[in-house]
C-alpha cells in the first residue's frame, strides 16, 4: 500500500505491506533508529513517538494507520544544535543510563510538559507510568522533567 507520512516535518512516501508496524516503518524504512522497541505488547513504552501531537506506542500501531499523519520522533526533539529542555533536563539530572528507554521516555515527558507546564511530582509519576526504565529507578527522570519545567527556554548544558 502507498502511504505518505510526515516525520519530523519531512514528508515520506513508501509502498509498504499493511502489516508493517509503525515502529518498523520508522526504523527500517526511514532509518531513524532513535525509536526503539522493548516488549511487543505495548507495556514498556520504548517505542513511544508522537502521532499528530499525541504520544503513542508505535509497536502497537500499523504504519498504514499513520497514513497522512504527522509524526515526531526523538530525532525531531532538538532544534538543530540546541537540545530541547527535556533533553537538557535528562542530562542535567542523570535521567538516563543505558539510553534505551530514553527516546520514548522523553517523547512522553515532552508531551506531558506541553499539556501541563508545571506538573506535580505525582502528575509526572503517573504521566511516565507507561514507560519502563530498568536503570534509573525513575527518581532522576522525575527530576529531569522538573528541571525542564523550570528551564523551558534556552539554558547552557556542558558536555
Amino acid at each position: 500500500m502507498q502511504v505518505t507520512i510526515t516525520v519530523n516535518g519531512v514528508e515520506h512516501s513508501r509502498d509498504i505491506e499493511p502489516r508493517m508496524l509503525l515502529v518498523h516503518f520508522i526504523r527500517d524504512e526511514l532509518l531513524l533508529r532513535g525509536t526503539h522497541w522493548g516488549c511487543d505488547t505495548s507495556n514498556c513504552g520504548a517505542c513511544t513517538l508522537w502521532v499528530d501531537n499525541e504520544p503513542v506506542k508505535s509497536c502497537t500501531m500499523l504504519a498504514v494507520m499513520a497514513d497522512g499523519k504527522a509524526i515526531r520522533t526523538v530525532e525531531g526533539l532538538a532544534n538543530g544544535a540546541e537540545l530541547d529542555p527535556i533533553q537538557k533536563g535528562f542530562m542535567e539530572c542523570h535521567g538516563l543510563q543505558c539510553g534505551f528507554c530514553t527516546p520514548g521516555m522523553m517523547m512522553t515527558c515532552r508531551a506531558l510538559l506541553d499539556g501541563n507546564p508545571h506538573p506535580t511530582e505525582a502528575e509526572i509519576r503517573e504521566g511516565i507510568s507507561g514507560n519502563i526504565c530498568r536503570c534509573t529507578g525513575y527518581k532522576n527522570i522525575v527530576a529531569a522533567v522538573q528541571w525542564a519545567a523550570e528551564n523551558p527556554a534556552t539554558s547552557e548544558v556542558t558536555a
Partner: peptide, 12 residues
C-alpha cells in the same frame, strides 16, 4: 480510567 493501562495506551 486512571487505572486503565497507562497514559500512552489511553491515547489510543
Amino acid at each position: 480510567e486512571h487505572m486503565i493501562a497507562d497514559p500512552i495506551v489511553r491515547n489510543r
